[in-house]
Design a protein around this nucleic acid. Structure first.
Lengths: 230, 230, 230, 230
DNA sequence: AATGAATGAGATTTCATTCAT
DNA sequence: AATGAATGAAATCTCATTCAT
């Protein structure tokens, strides 16, 4: 049979990316077959190869494009913000908004890192590091100015990112809350979480750790998002 | 010919579960092949079927046993705690500790729900709901006593769980921080996050939502942890 | 790598059907492996799935197409025949001829019904019933006109069909007898078998059968050709 | 778990044979797994090997014992019969009765010959030949005495056997007809079928067959019951 | 740029059979 | 005589990928 409507010409690549995002989001990268993907696009499996080079490259492109866009927009969102609290607010608002808009991209970029081949994995983790560093720097600045208090900056960075990223596992447009309410809820949680006060004392580092850090027993690229890099 | 070398006897099942946990954690359920699993155990692929009935059942058992244990231990940890703040502290300490001890089980139970067949998925989601409810009730109690302040209890529940569960993606024993420090860091973040004060106003619900809630377009069982159920 | 040698193009499906017929005839459906079949066709086992959807579907299609063709040709053969004896002669001649020509299809359609899944089984048995009814009606007509005599029409129908169908277990082209001789031999047997005369009395029905008919203890779809339906 | 009731001691072998008969009758030899068989008996698959040597031997024993018994009883049934018609009546009555009583054994012995390994196949076909010869001799005797008329003795032998053997595909105790009625119905059909009269002329043999008989293209042991041996 | 048919590897699962206990 | 756990082969079927058309 000839090709079906909706799959013709230069729009096919875009249809592949879109269907790929959805299918990987729903089933995971290795559970998604290229036949499934092709069917969703309305073409035969072999025809995919007119547009992608391999399944792996499709994943890599989706993830890479997402992270680049994320970084680009984050920098726009932080533009002109001065004080740490202001920056943190902007970070939260941006992150939440972005995750509500692009929950599939975000989810995949977090959960399918382990499906990337080593070279691709390294490239993505490097990009992701840049994003995390933005938050870590905001926290560090706030702590050094005395407006934030955390037990450990690294832990707080990971924890806040996890908190914010959690959205894409449950958010659905048209749910009970408005976007603004969801953003507000997260701003409250995050800003309060680093507010000074309470009984917390600074973290003690591990005295047991006198031997050199062991090589990890599992492949460096196994799980997302924050590999223990401290 | 009968068996020559390799694992034997009643320990095999335990070895399968252990290797299964590790491999699913590292590669994901559908990326783990039973050949791999058998090799890790030291038997032939077909021999797995003396111990499991299907690959799917293995996943289900691992997840179910984990959640049952999690619930059981949580209730022990909360025993005798009275005030909401006390309960929340205990919840955080328990959750973090458990996640550091059993990070693989926890990670799988969160990330592989979508790999469960509908019947199994439903059973697990039900169990998980019981766990989430424990936290939601603590928050609700604190809010009604005026000791906690959140914009929205549901959102706060999901956010705190996401924050806490994030640990199992980066924690590794023997890292820079002691367990106690990690627990303390999370207690600070979580307890502060719900501390009254700040400018937050109560969540406005979505005025746009006048039509009945649509059926979701993707399978009900796709992603973890908190399906939009509000 | 793509294909190198072997069958190609639109002829493959026909080759699969032909080889499938032969292999099922020789070894039986469940004893025929798809590897064998693929080897007979000259392709890889997996390549079969470009042409068939499952092994079961292949069997079903072979059987269904055969029975449809059988019915179609039978009706042609009976066209214009008036008297019962004439009809019975035509039936025998047609049946024997067809079974000599398509002995594999015939044999499979009779012996592999039990290998059909329930839904497929039901469909085929229904078609087969139509064929059997043609014969039963000829006999009934002859009996009511007094030109045939049988003890029981149902039993005679089954018996004559069994007699005629037996051919496909021993016929081989180029054997000792001409086709015409084989047909003549069967016409003599069948026509004589229902000729009036002899000592036979009408069948007594079973007096022991006072209780309702029990459900059969084995699956309704086990053996061919005539399930006890009286 | 220990062994279940009904499977203990010297009765196990009998249970295996009985369950084996049923399962092969219902599903066919190669579709019956030894695990199924063991389950039907109430033991583990491995335990079968305390009683049988291989799956193939089980089939062979079932078939061989059946045919031996068949021959033995046939000779008893023919004892003292003098005239051909008397003999043929006795043959039919015996055959039908036996097939109603032992329809599973009969069916298997006819349909699973192709599942026998060459050596076993040869042994069984030899035995079966003895049985067929009994009928062929009765017919030949009747023909030479002028009380029977057939176009071809070989064809008539096969056809009558097929007719009679068909019973085991539809007979079920407690059906509409009494055993006696079924026997009577078959006696009428068979005796009439060889009654002299009618227009049939003796079979012409195949003039085309001038070349030596080709070797059969398929394995000598493929199908039942009457290989073309003329 | 799409199809349809192919490949070779590999997926999960079942099989007959073995044997220490 | 039974069990339970093992083997190695093979079952059906799916996969990513290739390529002549």
């Amino acid at each position: 049979m000839a090709r079906t409507i909706g799959s013709y010409g230069p729009k096919t690549m875009e249809a592949i990316r879109k269907a790929g995002l959805r299918l990987i989001f729903e089933h995971g990268y290795s559970a998604m077959s290229l036949r499934q993907l092709a069917a969703a696009v309305g073409i035969q499996a072999g025809s995919l190869y007119n547009h992608i080079s391999t399944k792996q490259e499709l994943l890599f492109d989706l993830v890479q494009d997402h992270i680049n866009e994320l970084l680009r927009q984050l920098d726009l969102a932080l533009l002109g913000k001065q004080r740490p609290a202001e920056k943190l607010s902007a970070f939260v608002a941006f992150h939440v908004t972005y995750h509500m808009t692009k929950k599939r991209e975000v989810f995949i970029a977090n959960s399918e890192l382990r499906s990337l081949e080593p070279k691709n994995y390294d490239a993505i983790v490097k990009l992701r590091g840049a994003y995390e560093r933005r938050l870590a720097e905001i926290l560090a600045e706030g702590v050094s100015e005395g407006v934030f208090e955390v037990v450990d900056i690294q832990v707080a960075t990971f924890a806040i990112l996890a908190l914010l990223t959690g959205i894409c596992t449950w958010y659905r447009p048209g749910g009970r809350l408005t976007r603004e309410a969801i953003i507000a809820a997260h701003e409250k949680l995050v800003l309060s979480s680093v507010t000074p006060g309470g009984t917390a004392s600074p973290a003690r580092t591990n005295p047991a750790r006198t031997t050199p850090v062991r090589k990890r027993s599992r492949p460096a690229r196994s799980v997302a998002p924050g590999q223990q890099r401290d």
